[in-house]
Nucleic acid binder design. Structure first.
Lengths: 191, 191
DNA sequence: AGAAAAAATAACCCTATGGTAAGAAAACTA
DNA sequence: TAGTTTTCTTACCATAGGGTTATTTTTTCT
């Protein structure tokens, strides 16, 4: 729990009451590789904060192919934000890809925190701003970089994810097949 | 100005003082097709709200190719949010692609509005949530749809943009060349 | 450790999209 | 409205990446 509280405190002054409240709605969980926390098509109840380990958010398209929207490692948040913010059923599946320690928050309770403790507003606004920036960058990278360049960037930006995610997960994040990624890796290893 | 004030009022209760403040920092502008409001590599001072017309945000890659991150029409916001939120120089160019009426806001003044009038916090949080949702959807679409499907979706989602944007802008938004888009259009017209 | 399952690589050919260049059409501009 | 510029289309070949299947390597499980 300290991870999260410290992370919050590094951005805002957290009153002890607010801290108590956060702790009161948090559920610490140990989850195992392969566990599915949110399943495509179901109601999304929770948002998760990763203390340790790795989770993945992906969708399955009409041909059964998986496409990874997000990985989440230590100190990242993950959920189906499309479903939560639009109040819809999940289009994503959230899956543990390594044994992980996570903190689950009921999305509705979490959403109520802003009226109870307005100091969270600015915190969340900054979080969302950073999130928007990273998404804008990802879109621009997808538009202008080759698969090879995107892979190199991915390894530089998220070196820790490689240890958890098999190559076909990474390929599905980069928008290529695992065979193409394998080819790229072979090319890179020749240099 | 009413557009914007009404839009805000449809989401939050706006005190008359807050409304006055918004008006006091807003600059109404008439801009012409071809005008560049933000230029790649420069300091980003403003965020723009479009009252009428159409603007476009794009970057130019190392080979000189343009990639469109965003179009903005009536009632949309546009700027280089990567630069503003990260306090960096612009990586994007913001250009008018039709004669437009817009409202310019100094980004720093706008950022100060939340401490002056906290009722804007929830408003902006919701805006950012919607923005995140649309970006998540765009990334998922880019991963799982063909160019043809992305073009159809684009026409359905943003039918108004077609009247302003030449095809090569749309192609650069979809992540294909204008030649490929032309081919797709020919195929579609055969049906 | 040995068996079974999962993941990665390889080799094949295929297809969607890219690059270049030229001509046609449309949109400005004087 | 004629001339100029921009945009769109077409056609050519080139290539990055996809689909399929088989094989090898690695990981997991008992």
């Amino acid at each position: 729990m300290d991870n999260l509280i410290n992370k919050i405190k590094s951005h805002i002054d957290l009153s002890s009451k607010a801290e108590e409240y956060v702790v009161s709605i948090a559920k610490e969980l140990m989850v195992s590789k392969g566990d599915v926390l949110i399943r495509q098509g179901q109601v999304v109840k929770n948002t998760y904060f990763v203390k340790d380990g790795c989770l993945r958010a992906y969708c399955i398209d009409k041909n059964g192919k998986e496409h990874t929207l997000q990985f989440a490692i230590k100190n990242w948040w993950i959920s189906d934000f499309i479903a939560i913010y639009n109040n819809e059923l999940s289009t994503l599946t959230i899956e543990c890809i390594a044994d992980s320690k996570i903190i689950g928050f009921n999305a509705k309770l979490l959403d109520g925190i802003y009226s109870k403790f307005p100091e969270f507003e600015a915190f969340q606004r900054k979080n969302l701003e950073r999130h928007v920036v990273s998404l804008h960058k990802r879109i621009l990278n997808q538009l202008q970089l080759t698969a090879q360049e995107r892979y190199e960037l991915f390894l530089n930006q998220y070196p820790d994810i490689e240890q958890y995610a098999p190559n076909y997960h990474i390929a599905s994040y980069l928008g290529i097949t695992q065979q193409s990624l394998s080819r790229i890796r072979v090319e890179n290893s020749k240099k």
